[in-house]
Design a protein around this nucleic acid. Structure first.
Lengths: 131, 131
DNA sequence: CCCAAAGTGTTATAATATAACGTAAACAGT
DNA sequence: ACTGTTTACGTTATATTATAACACTTTGGG
């Protein structure tokens, strides 16, 4: 019995799903002004909710948000490969990643709750077209 | 033959080394006002340089900076375990982490350049004293 | 029906980061 | 030493990202 998303949450989620690359809160706001949204908190609230639902992810290293690329990955642990050339992002689910995270956490004596892994570089296409 | 650090770079680095937990740029500025620093760019410039030298790390998920905990961090690849209770951070060098990152990057077809892994949770001490 | 929880719209402001300008110091090559 | 180049400096102003606070509305359970 999960509650349906609200209008603003749907607007934000749909915009992220349709976007070819990560969006900042303010770029979302810009796009959603035609739908009546006017102020940052409206965006940030929707984003926060979508994050807790696991429907989107925040890329901390670029202050941007992406729709989850896996239908229901609410609690999976993902890595993100970010191309600095074209901003394309791949969300990678790797079986070893979770155990890797547990290993690092254990070394530090930390009970892990939330984690991010973000890899920056150049995708094949951008690598090929370097100056 | 590495160039010596400049005055501002040393001030920022020393402050980070002495700090018990990650510092934001503005908290560094606050502390360094007594040494004559006055404006954000002075801090951000020093931070940027120290980052490229591998002497400090940025924790993207909390917009904060820490001194590298390993004498000569040629290790551009580290994992960070961050306690949300007391803000203590452990920098973990794990041999598997680099190969893990390469693996994720390869899956995405990305040539990796820079990466971050940040794990949030509670350290033993904070876990024990939960309400 | 009533209450509590969650969401809304709004204004204002906090926190983080960079642009742009002119000057000065460091340094390599002649 | 002189030049040009690179790097750093100090400064003012501004851009970008994110939240506080308030009053109101919607939602859904008991």
């Amino acid at each position: 019995m999960s509650k349906p998303l609200t209008k603003n949450q749907i607007l934000v989620l749909d915009t992220l799903k349709a976007a070819p690359k990560p969006q900042t809160a303010y770029s979302l706001l810009e796009q959603l002004k035609e739908h009546g949204l006017k102020a940052p908190p409206q965006i940030y609230r929707a984003l926060e909710k979508l994050l807790t639902l696991g429907l989107i992810h925040k890329l901390e290293s670029i202050n941007s948000f992406v729709a989850c690329q896996h239908s229901d990955c609410a609690h999976q642990i993902a890595g993100f490969a970010i191309c600095d050339g074209c901003d394309q992002v791949s969300e990678i689910i790797d079986d070893n990643l979770e155990s890797q995270i547990r290993s690092v956490a254990k070394t530090a004596g930390l009970v892990p709750k939330k984690s991010t892994m973000e890899i920056h570089g150049l995708c094949r296409s951008c690598k090929g077209s370097e100056a």
